[in-house]
Amino acid sequence: MPTLSYHAEWRPHAPAELPSCHTTSYPARLKDGSALILPLRPLPDGDRAIALLMSNQTDFAVEREIIRLLTDTARELAPEVIVGVPTMGLAYARPVAENLGFDSYVALGHSRKFWYDEELSEPLTSSTSPDRSKRLYLDPALVERVRGKRVLIVDDVLNTGRTAAVATRLMHKVQAEVTGIMAVLTEGWAWQAELGKVGQDTPGLVHALGHIPLFERGAGGWYPVAGS
């Protein structure tokens, strides 16, 4: 199996127009007019690809720009608590909470500690491992940090929306008000239907810095899938 390196870039100005065909990378336009240049990674079927954001493999300089933009977005939403979802959402939730001047944040997790309560968990099927079911947990020790509070859920990329929907259900269990779901990027639109299942107004709920389509193979490279 070939070794695949990972490299993403941040540029202060997005291109005025995007080409119809992309070969190795895709410039995702961000809300402030900058661009996040992401590598295109073919999926196992070989006919489709995704623009891959690996939040734990980006350079610190790129990470700082993303966190800056996320902090600005979070500040506009005026949450009382930042809630991070595993795994990649935690990389952004913690520094955003610190930048807002909060004393702490709430990290949800997949690993069940011995003192956890199953009532404070929800089942979750991973989009990358659809045959493996796991659970999303809220540590009982953190319940009072979110109960009755305005919380902002933070993730890196919203694609299926399953994790964000499950995190929202967990917050509803402890009477927290989900004031928004913040992500670096949305990918496709499947997440809208998933979040709709938990009774959330998805158009006003999700706040992302940018959007990336899905891609299909064509002559000379990769083309965004229509409607994605």
Rank of each mutant, 00 (worst) to 15 (best):
Y92A: 00
A91Q: 06
R135M: 04
R145S: 03
T24P: 01
M182I: 03
R150G: 08
V225N: 03
T71Q: 01
Y92L: 05
R41D: 02
S104R: 14
E9T: 06
H207V: 14
I212D: 14
G227Q: 07
A49G: 10
L195K: 07
A51E: 07
R169N: 00
V85S: 04
D139P: 04
I212C: 13
V146G: 03
H7R: 12
A35L: 11
H211I: 07
D131C: 09
P39V: 07
P19T: 05
V225H: 04
D32A: 05
R145H: 01
H110S: 13
P12N: 02
E177F: 03
L124M: 12
W10F: 12
A35G: 14
K31T: 14
D156N: 09
R11W: 00
T87I: 00
P213F: 15
Q200P: 10
G220R: 02
V106E: 08
K173V: 09
G188T: 14
R68K: 12
P95T: 09
R112P: 08
S133P: 08
L18S: 00
N159C: 12
L53P: 14
A78L: 11
G33F: 01
S127L: 09
E98N: 02
A141R: 05
F215A: 14
A165I: 05
D155F: 02
E216M: 12
T202V: 15
L195E: 04
I153A: 05
P140K: 08
G89I: 01
D45Y: 00
E17Q: 08
H22L: 10
A164K: 05
L43F: 15
D32K: 04
L70R: 03
A8W: 11
G227F: 04
R132M: 02
R41P: 03
T73M: 11
E63F: 10
V143N: 03
P86F: 01
S133N: 12
K173H: 10
V62F: 12
A14C: 02
K173M: 13
N159L: 06
Y26R: 10
W189A: 09
I37N: 12
T179C: 14
E187K: 13
D72L: 10
E144K: 14
G89C: 04
